[in-house]
Nucleic acid binder design. Structure first.
Length: 589
DNA sequence: ATTGAGAGCGCG
DNA sequence: AAAGCGCGCTCTCAAT
């Protein structure tokens, strides 16, 4: 059963029951926003699916009131998928003209709407629609109203009228579960020890400088750089043109300032410069300013953007949540009496490719009798396809990314011979992209069409009297789009596996129940293990110490479940490396 | 003052 | 070793 939440008038909330069997919706009930959390908590029984326009518009307020829901349907996210899915092309939803549900901007997980509503501060602002769209069009803000009940009907019809209702149903459920997870991670926050982070910074950079000044260690390196280049004190190492000029004058012979280019050169400036760049990065991207901005009360509150990447991966906004450098992960420390369970999926993308392509031999290469799986690249070596693990790895990466040079291209023919189904699948995706066609993930997320600029460049190449450069530009653009679609099917399906994994972990953790003593985590997680981080193929669970080992087992079971959800009985395994640690840095990365 | 680009590096 | 996929962030510098 679906329970649809909608904005009512004067801060009221409308609640409508929509049966699963296509029967007409019940009458809309109206209740004051202040009573919403209580009402949701009362009706939540683990089987209802809560439907709302945007998870971040509703769920943070519920969490603040300690209410967690088991299942949701995020209409904004679902609409975006259904609108372009190749599985749903013939449906009314896909054929309808652009409407208020198209191009809705995600709501940031900001201050809690319910709290604002209680405080009486601009309650209508709680329901403001997002502003921008990719093409600059303004979606319905004001004029057109979002009508969640009829939109749900349209979406359910689109799913059942699609060519793959089962897969789309799973995709929408997984995407929405992901939205719940993202909101919960924001709510709980990643445990972050400011004192440890500060110690890391002080050790590397020296004490925190006064505003506008460079840290001691950086200042010292700048002196050495100027000295090695015989440059004046006006040389600004943060200005690339400035620095390159000085290096040219000193005869260093650098064509760029990229780390791996500099590493090939032999000159006294190289060592201090490389060290400067590395420390400068730490200082600017994850230094004291970052700490001030993003860590409050011992928690880093990430702002994930679910479905923010075309492939279906999550993006993030602010804080660089998906780029936490390894050297600051020491600051991620479990609360006293709690542990971190860190798990990452081993060789996720090639395994997903094996499932996608139904490549029995590649699946076998990553499989072990105990069901836990074995190193896929080692298995490829054992199959005799290539000589070394490194060859297997760069070969597979090249196949999935479209690499055309070096060792990766060299071993590709041998992989193609040993695993024809897998390699053929990515090659076909690449050729489809080169023709300007759309490709689709296993569960039904379709790639965007190439776009106007693409067609223009292609058109120019065939025009009368167009030069060789126009033709080569078109050719290189064609290949680039082929690499994109080649990767899209793999990366996108891996993202679907990860969503299913997350959803399963989330449900299993909740089912583990409560411990006796509350920890420092906010309700509803004070006595429960909960997700605190997600990074494409990796999760961190914050768990009461006594539950850490059983949590590790559940996370493994969830990976197996995700594999089954996507690929049924096809025998591809998804092994994890799991560590129970106090600090994130102690999990082997 | 604000905006957009390019360069570079962090993560998977 | 530094090609090939997807991102976000911070910096400088030129354009507005």
């Amino acid at each position: 059963m679906h329970l649809v939440l909608a904005r009512g008038t004067a801060g009221a909330v409308g609640l409508t029951t929509v049966p699963d069997d296509g029967a007409p919706p019940g009458p809309a009930e109206s209740l004051p926003a202040a009573r919403l959390a209580g009402e949701v908590g009362r009706r939540e029984d683990g089987s209802v699916r809560w439907v709302w326009d945007d998870t971040n518009r509703w769920y943070p307020a519920l969490l603040t009131d300690g209410v967690r829901v088991e299942r949701a349907h995020d209409l904004r996210l679902a609409h975006a998928i259904l609108r372009s899915s190749a599985f749903a092309v013939g449906t009314d939803l896909a054929r309808a003209p652009r409407g208020p549900w198209d191009g809705l901007a995600p709501t940031p997980p900001g201050p809690s709407p319910a709290l604002l509503a209680h405080a009486g501060a601009r309650p209508e602002a709680l329901f403001d629609l997002g502003e921008m769209t990719a093409d600059g069009e303004r979606p319905a803000s004001g004029g057109e109203e979002l009508e969640p009940v009829s939109e749900l009907r349209a979406q359910l019809d689109a799913v059942s009228g699609s060519t793959e209702p089962g897969r789309l149903r799973l995709l929408l459920a997984a995407e929405s579960a992901g939205a719940l997870v993202a909101a919960e991670i924001h709510h709980a926050g990643l445990p972050w020890r400011t004192d440890v982070h500060d110690a890391i910074l002080t050790e590397a950079l020296g004490p925190r400088p006064r505003p506008g000044a460079r840290p001691e260690r950086l200042e010292e390196l700048v002196r050495r750089i100027r000295e090695a280049l015989d440059a004046p004190p006006t040389l600004n190492p943060d200005s690339h043109p400035d620095l390159l000029k000085a290096m040219e004058y000193a005869g260093v012979g650098a064509r760029s300032l990229r780390k791996w280019e500099l590493e090939k050169l032999d000159h006294p400036v190289i060592a201090p410069l490389l060290e400067y760049k590395s420390l400068y990065r730490l200082y600017t991207a994850n230094g004291w300013a970052w700490l001030d901005t993003w860590v409050r009360d011992g928690r880093f509150r990430m702002e994930y953007v679910v479905g923010g990447v075309v492939t279906g991966r999550w993006a993030s906004s602010g804080g660089g949540a998906l780029q936490l450098p390894k050297n600051v992960r020491r600051a991620v420390v479990a609360d006293p009496g709690w542990r971190l369970v860190v798990a990452d999926a081993a060789q996720l993308e090639p395994r997903v490719l094996a499932g996608l392509a139904r490549d029995e031999r590649m699946a076998a290469a990553g499989r072990s009798a105990d069901g836990q799986g074995t190193d896929l690249y080692a298995g490829i070596v054992a199959s005799g396809a290539v000589e070394t693990r490194e060859h297997a790895k760069v070969g597979m990466l090249g196949a999935m990314y479209g690499g055309t040079t070096g060792a990766s291209a060299q071993v590709l023919p041998r992989l193609a011979k040993a695993f024809p189904a897998a390699i053929d699948l990515v090659e076909r995706a690449a050729r489809a992209g080169e023709r300007g066609e759309v490709v689709t993930t296993w569960l039904g997320r379709s790639s965007p069409p190439p776009g106007e600029a693409w067609a223009q460049v292609q058109g120019l190449a065939f025009e009368e009297g167009s030069g060789a450069d126009a033709a080569s530009r078109a050719r290189s653009q064609t290949r680039a789009w082929g690499r994109f679609t080649r990767n899209f099917v793999v990366q996108g399906t891996a993202a679907e596996w990860a969503l299913c994994w997350l959803a399963s972990i989330r449900r299993r953790l909740w089912e583990l129940g409560e411990t006796a003593d509350p920890g420092q985590a906010p309700e509803p997680f004070a006595r429960r293990p909960h997700l605190v981080y997600f990074l494409h193929d990796e999760v961190v669970v914050h768990a009461p110490a006594a539950l850490a080992d059983v949590v590790a087992d559940e996370v493994r079971a969830a990976a197996t479940e995700a594999g089954r959800l996507l690929f049924g009985s096809f025998p591809v395994q998804f092994p994890l490396s799991v560590a129970v640690v106090d600090s994130y840095a102690d999990a082997k990365g």
